[in-house]
Each structure stands twice: as structure tokens, then as C-alpha cells.
Design a protein around this nucleic acid. Structure first.
Lengths: 145, 145
DNA sequence: ACCTCTTCTTGAGTCAGTCAAGAAAAGACT
DNA sequence: AGTCTTTTCTTGACTGACTCAAGAAGAGGT
């Protein structure tokens, strides 16, 4: 996990003011990849005292807009955030427990896949979500038999 | 769009009872691909008189569970439904207006993509969402310049 | 025609996320 | 350093998609 100085530099390089809530949120996203907003709020408060949920929402929106964090939102899940940005990787989601893991992009640069028939759309990104079962849930399911 | 008799057959083949709300919802999903729940509720009521929103939610859940319709939910969008199932096609979503179009799967059968590093997950489906701009929004954006 | 089980209606409730207005803090400029 | 301006944070109310629960209605088997 990057040191506070590095996080400050990150914020400044994105033309964002350096504030306590922003540092705390950025640190929390680095420390807890794929965490949802509630988890992040709890982590921020544990480290940095009282911070309103609204501030965390605002900060996450600002960080997402600046490209410092990435927002992911699989179907039937609340929004989650991660600090790994710019490498066009994908995710695998467990249908049973909702756990998310990173998957490297097999193809290369974004959009990484070209649609055969793009319906006239100008495509800039291909988001891939693999659905399946995590190791723990696979084991648990086969134990039942 | 399939005739009512075909929709009835579809329901029976999935071991679902044939009711007026179910026929109306199924017809609406066929008539309005990628429609959200509100649009479907309006369509159902226009064709079939008063139907509670709860009934439509329940029916959509039953139809989704039976595999007669597919639920799609891009980030920042409410749930949408389509009747094209079983062919593992994908979607392209307009970042500007949210319009959705179908994209045929370039690769083949589900899961259609194999992750290079699957983190131990057992993967059964790869869901691909292409992000970009629809023809109308592309034109509108270049007109501004 | 009846009975049983599933489905539909009604109405209240939940929860992630948003809006709005004022208070506070960051950074710029004397 | 001290002020000023702009951006950010706090507080608290609100929105809207979706869910829960209990009783009424309808479907299909006997």
C-alpha cells in the first residue's frame, strides 16, 4: 500500500485538493480492493475519525472522475471500488457469495475486444465480467453431495 | 413477435402456469427489447388493464428463473429485460443516452472467453459489455464542434 | 364442482444513493 | 501572516428501485 506522501502526490497530480477525507478514502480503496461503499466508510472512520457518508460518496465520485479509482458494479451488487486503474483488467464474480477477484486481460489494450457487429456504435471499452464460483463456494457445494 | 399461443406454449414448456399477467409481461418483453421495469409495467397495463407492479416484478423473476427472459443490468442503470436467451450474445451501451444494442458473440459458445488466470474460480459465463456512443449521440457530439 | 397450491393484489418497508444549503477548510494573492 | 475566493464537507431530508408479508383470487388436478 502506498505511503501517505504518495497518495498526496496522486491527488495533486490529478488537480485535486489534498484533504483528510480524500487521503483516508484513497488509502481505504488501496487497502481494501473491491470494497463496497459501506465498508469504505467504516474503514475511513476507523482511521480518520468522523467523516460523513456524503463526504465519502462525493470523494469517491471525484476520485472516479479523475481516474484515480475505478468503480465496478456487477448486477445485483452495490457499487464497489478499486485502485487498480489504467490496465484494463477484468473481474470474476462468485455467483454464490459475491466475492470478486481480478483477472488479467487476455487480449491487450482497451477496448481489448472488437465487436463483430457494432450497430454503428463507437466503442471505447469492453468490460468483461466472468461469472462462476469461487474456490470456497465450489468446495462447499461439492461437500454437500 | 410470437403469437399468444406460442407464448402460452413457452410458459407451459417451462412448467409455469399460464396467466394473463404472465402472457402480458412475456409479450411486452418480446415487443420491447432492453426495456426497464417501468416501461414494461406501462406496456403491460396498456394491453392488459390493471396489473400491480409487484406482479410484474414477480413474473419477471419467475421468467428469469425459468430462462425465458434474460435480465441485464449495466452499471448506473436499472434492471432491463430481453427475450433473446440462450445464444450468449452481448451488449453495447451508449455512455451518453444509455441505449443498448445487441452484439453477437464473436467467439462462440458460453462461457465464450477463458480467463488466463481464473483465481481458482469455476467460470460458467463471460458477460461482455461494450461501452461507447450510439450513432445518434456520436453525431450530436461532432455537431457541437 | 371441488380442493389445493400457486400466483396476484395491496400496502407498508428497506436501503443505496442523491439533493440542497450552510459551515468549514484549502490554496491563491496580496 | 492575513484576507479572499473557491472548493469541499456536514447535516438532514429525500428519492426511487426494489422487496416483504398477508390475505384474496385464480389455475389446474382429481
Amino acid at each position: 500500500m502506498p505511503a501517505t506522501v504518495d497518495l498526496e502526490r496522486l491527488l495533486r497530480s490529478a488537480d485535486l485538493r489534498v484533504t483528510r477525507p480524500r487521503l483516508a478514502v484513497l488509502a481505504a480503496v488501496h487497502a481494501l480492493p473491491h470494497a463496497d461503499t459501506d465498508t469504505l466508510i467504516a474503514a475511513v472512520r476507523a482511521e480518520s475519525g468522523d467523516v460523513s457518508h456524503q463526504a465519502v460518496y462525493d470523494v469517491l465520485k471525484a476520485l472516479t472522475g479523475a481516474g484515480l479509482v475505478r468503480r465496478i458494479q456487477p448486477a445485483d451488487s452495490v457499487a464497489r471500488y478499486e485502485s487498480r486503474v489504467g490496465d484494463n483488467h477484468h473481474h470474476v464474480v462468485c455467483r454464490s457469495c459475491g466475492e470478486i477477484a481480478d483477472v488479467d486481460c487476455a487480449v491487450g489494450e482497451a477496448p481489448c475486444l472488437t465487436a463483430t457487429n457494432d450497430a454503428g456504435f463507437v466503442i471505447d471499452e469492453a468490460e468483461v465480467i466472468y461469472w462462476g464460483r469461487c474456490p470456497r463456494c465450489t468446495t462447499a457445494a461439492s461437500d454437500l453431495q
